[in-house]
Amino acid sequence: MHGPLPLPAADVDALARRTRARRRRETLLTHASLVLGVLVFAFPIYLTLIGSTHDVNTIGRGDVPLLPGGEAIANYAQAWSAGGGRYMGVPAAGMLANSLVMALLITLGKIAISLASAYAVVFFRFPFRMLAFWLIFITLMLPVEVRIIPTFQVMVDLQLTNSMAGLTVPLIASATATLLFRQFFLTIPDEYVEAAKIDGAGPLRFFKDVVLPLSVTNIAALFVILFIYGWNQYLWPLLIVNDRSLETIVVGLTKMIGGGDAQNEWNVIMATAVLALLPPVAVVVLMQRWFVKGLTETEK
């Protein structure tokens, strides 16, 4: 604390100097913290990226390199078309395709049935409307991991294991997406519905011509969130699929590592890890604006 002004001129000078020094220090500290933060989050990826460009012996010996090597093409080619040798090689190309199909089916499925049910709940009155809404709402509370074993048994009973349908359909029910669309539909002015009625448009036409175009940004935002949710599924595919041709890349990658033996083909594993990372990271970075909107709005 300083005394009340007016201070002697020398003190003001000293104060001014201290203020300038403090500001410089603060700016420097801010940048330093952020650079450090960025490094902490980028370094693991960097290390993996570097590892994926060296031959198997360099990494196996434990000479962890910090600069790229010359084996990138060979490693990625092997990962893409053959997989890791010690682990009965499942090519990454197939696993990536499985992950992509799974992520897209979950994403589009969730968006479609959530749009439909939110539209029904908001724009109609019918018996048991609120009951239906609450039934959907309750599912918000239980993540799939909690009820995983009984759900798995249901899948066995329905003979849905080892199928793309079994992989995706149970994950398609979505309370969050339904809530988001409901929230958004409630902000669509009543006048729009009135105008549609006066123009003689029915509910389906109103949906197609008015509601859907208005929802485009919300759909884009949800798409990012749900695509990542779908791509990153782990426990569910682990349980449902043991047919290697349906393996997803995230599960396949950890199976390649197994117990983490030093003798693993680490270079190929690292190349596969990079391939597994790339699509969801690309979606987040390229669609950053929608991503942030989607995240902060679905969760509130």
Binding site: H2, L5, P6, A9, V12, L15, T19, R20
Partner: peptide
């Protein structure tokens, strides 16, 4: 200048 003193480099907190 506040009260005849140059406060240009000072923070709001020091300007009273």
């Amino acid at each position: 200048l506040i009260g005849g003193q140059d406060v240009t480099p000072l923070e709001p907190a020091d300007r009273d």
